[in-house]
Design a protein around this nucleic acid. Sequence first.
DNA 1: GGCAGTAATTCTGCATGCACTTTCATGAGC
DNA 2: GCTCATGAAAGTGCATGCAGAATTACTGCC
Lengths: 250, 250
Amino acid sequence: MEASNRAAVICRAIRRAILEQALAPGDKLPEDTLGERFGVSRTIARHALGQLASEGLVELRRNRIAVVATPSFDEARDEFDIRRELERLVVRALCGRLTVAQLQELRAHLADEEKAHGGPAANSIRLATEFHVKLAEMTGKPTLTRYVREIAYRSSLSLATFGRPHSSECAISEHRSVIEALAAGDGDAAASLMAHHLDQVADRAFLKVAPARGDLMEVLAPYAEVDHAASGHQPPKPRLRSKANAQSSG
Amino acid sequence: MEASNRAAVICRAIRRAILEQALAPGDKLPEDTLGERFGVSRTIARHALGQLASEGLVELRRNRIAVVATPSFDEARDEFDIRRELERLVVRALCGRLTVAQLQELRAHLADEEKAHGGPAANSIRLATEFHVKLAEMTGKPTLTRYVREIAYRSSLSLATFGRPHSSECAISEHRSVIEALAAGDGDAAASLMAHHLDQVADRAFLKVAPARGDLMEVLAPYAEVDHAASGHQPPKPRLRSKANAQSSG
DNA sequence: GGCAGTAATTCTGCATGCACTTTCATGAGC
DNA sequence: GCTCATGAAAGTGCATGCAGAATTACTGCC
């Protein structure tokens, strides 16, 4: 799938780091540091960054250090709209075509999600995303898989930027009901359950922006971001994001 | 939008060549030839090829010359399914939000399509594709635009592989009705007209595979391709494609 | 102490060189 | 005439070096 192994290793590492929110939007990714860390030359590191940029996970600006992408609020919203349709296609393609082994794999994945529930959020987030990617892969449709994977990873960046603390228990039960609808061969149900699930994720994550009380910054962040998008260039904003989230119980 | 100008120039040139079918699936793209042609080093050419590969227009195999991608029949079919949903999102996003200037631009584009109707097919194909890309761009949604653009360009490769002679007059009238529905602010109509249009394109292009009489090769090509995909590696197949198409009136 | 101007450092953009792989042409053997 | 080995040519994979841009550190000044 990836051009060469050595660049692919870097890509995978960075993708995973983003997924587990070890890398946050805006974090710098200098070519030589990267190359040094992975024991390759800048050429390879550069190649990997290009690949990640084409997936929307990294932003490349001329003569500037590459940074982890910072999706705007609008982008996040629009991408969830796309994602809903793509994943609807996924479950429709899957319905009635899943093998016993595949169903078993999905249920095993669900078990992993449950097991990770009490633990660190990074694991839960990663597993939840991988559930969607795994479903897409099972369609055997390369383009659909690619788009779902890209957008799912991008979603985790949106979550990092705008999301409030991840609540995984709802997601898990929604995953389960999608699987059961697929197992029952009910494509319509599976499709609307998936669409509903993604709407819920979006709502939980950043659409219902806090019930008024508490941190004003958090409420305003999305709207501020909209303004930035309109004005066309990024204001300073040095890591205000994580601070705002951390104080949400203020 | 693209990392650097110099690589972007090469990308644009190749994309356009593909769109106008001056480059056919399987055509070779050696790094140094490319670099020489555009007055840059292999490094830049290589970078451009990586970019195009990430868009699915070029296939990169280790230690092998890059080639223009050859979508399989299944891929082509699946991508039209994706495209239908994406472009439905496009017209829904556009409906009621198009400015007078934008409507004017779309109608001007339609006029260009009509003007190109009698002329070389390359022009008609390019303009038809650009119509869809232009619509997507007008949404202002970067990810949606990117995906529609990628898939539209990929479609032109599918057409080159499986398509029969392009018939542009239907496409043009269908484009017109989409625009008029958008101008009238009827989102439902626009969405289903667009979906219908894409279905028609797919049907005209390669789903109704010739009415039995004539060249057997042409009828079998898609099924042969399905087989290749299943067996996992490409058989020789040295440009059989264009020959089969040319003899379709046998 | 705060601030502007400047030098040093860091980092990217790109070409080039070398090692290795694939491909192709040539010719020997059957 | 056909197949198969063999060596040359062509092409990619990757590291490195140099030029220039961006950033940072530093110094003198108010």
